[in-house]
Amino acid sequence: MAVKRLAIVTGDHHAPDPTKLGHAYGAEDFAAHSAMVEAFSSLGRFEITVFNAHDGLLEKLLAARPDLVVNFCDTGLFNRPRFELHLPAFLEVHGIAYTGAPPQAMVTAFDKQAVRLIAEALGVEVPREAFLPGGMGEIPDIFPALLKPNQADGSVGITQHSVVRDAAEARAYLAFLAEILPGADVLWQEYLPGPEYGMGLIGNPETELCALPPLEVDFSRLPEGLNPILSFESKADPSSPYWTEIRFRRAEIEDEVRERLEGWAKRLFHRFGLRDYGRFDFRCAADGRPKLLETNPNPAWANDGKLAFMASFAGIAYPRMLEMIVEAAEARIGGGA
């Protein structure tokens, strides 16, 4: 399938977004969006239409019937995380090709406990964990622990205080989660104190699935006393040291560890039915063994996101990375997948 006319769909710049500070897009978000559009334009091979408002979006896509929808709507329709599957579901019903994960993959990956259970069944190491329905129940005997919502995007509900070391801290954080996310199920997860890695894949198992060099999160510049985690502040608050002091660098790890992470990532990519690209986050326990943190079926596409950093480690410029995602979809669709 030769792709010429692209429709690029992002989050809705005009609607409230719970993954943003103040629930609104900021200057950094608009800059990343502009950089992405410019990168696609620089390729010189596509006719591009950009949709960053969701009122009437589905009708407009149906009328335009582009060759391919680039689904960069990682916030969900109208910036509602639970609506992330709706756009690909609509496109499938109407026979419009699109990049990235199908609806079922998004549904499964959105449930963090389900991800853990499936990964464990595949032989992928995972943290010890307990599930608190509605954030209620007995305090598990897992300390230190990381407390987070079972279903949320953009690290919503994960702050610098998410790491708890005793029952008093845990109860205080559970009360905080109940206030900001009433009735939300909570994961009580073993806190992993070791290095944190990202593994990115571009392509598809049926054609070619390319593993990018792994990334390590550098927490070394965080002020003393701040827990070294990627919190909501690290993704949404430019005034926070979690934003200003955390860096991404190429992971310097032994070949055996890299091969294990790559193998796990490819196994998970296939099992969850991801397509065209995906990202997997791992963190090491005290004994140095990596364990799965997250499966990201529709990972951040921005030029300052993890996937772009990993591509740069392989000498892949940002425009080329975006082109590779489109080419992965082209090859998949051409093969009937």
Rank of each mutant, 00 (worst) to 15 (best):
P66Y: 05
H54G: 07
F46C: 10
L62E: 11
L43N: 07
K60M: 11
K60T: 06
A63F: 01
F46R: 09
G44N: 11
L62H: 13
R65F: 04
V50A: 07
G44S: 12
E47I: 08
F40D: 05
A35I: 02
A35D: 13
A32H: 04
F51S: 02
S34T: 13
E59S: 11
D55S: 09
S41H: 13
D55A: 13
N52T: 12
G44A: 12
F51N: 03
A63T: 09
T49E: 14
D67E: 10
K60S: 15
E47W: 07
R45A: 13
E47P: 02
D67V: 11
H54T: 05
P66E: 10
L58D: 01
F51P: 01
L68M: 13
L68R: 06
R45M: 14
S34I: 02
G56N: 04
V37W: 04
A31G: 00
M36Y: 01
G56D: 06
R65D: 03
A39R: 09
F40H: 11
F40P: 02
G56I: 02
R45H: 11
F40C: 04
A32T: 09
M36Q: 09
R45I: 15
L61Y: 04
L61R: 02
E59G: 08
S34A: 15
L43W: 05
L58C: 03
L43D: 08
A63Y: 01
A53K: 12
A39F: 09
R65S: 04
L68Y: 06
H33R: 13
V50R: 03
A63N: 06
M36D: 00
G44F: 10
F40K: 07
N52H: 15
A35P: 00
P66C: 08
H33C: 01
L57R: 03
V37D: 02
K60L: 05
V37R: 11
E47A: 14
H54S: 06
H54R: 08
L58W: 00
P66R: 08
R65C: 05
H33N: 01
T49D: 08
H33G: 00
A63D: 11
F46M: 10
H33S: 03
T49P: 00
A31M: 02
H33L: 14
F51L: 03
L68A: 08
A39K: 09
E38S: 14
V37T: 07
R45L: 12
L68I: 04
M36G: 04
I48K: 05
F40I: 05
S41K: 14
F46E: 06
L62W: 13
F46T: 04
E38P: 00
R65H: 06
A63P: 01
I48W: 08
A53S: 13
N52I: 01
A31T: 07
P66A: 09
L61G: 02
R65Q: 10
A63G: 05
A39M: 10
S42L: 08
V50K: 03
L43Q: 08
P66Q: 10
H33I: 02
I48M: 10
A39G: 09
L58V: 05
D55E: 15
A32F: 00
K60V: 00
E38A: 15
S34Q: 14
P66W: 11
F46I: 08
A53D: 09
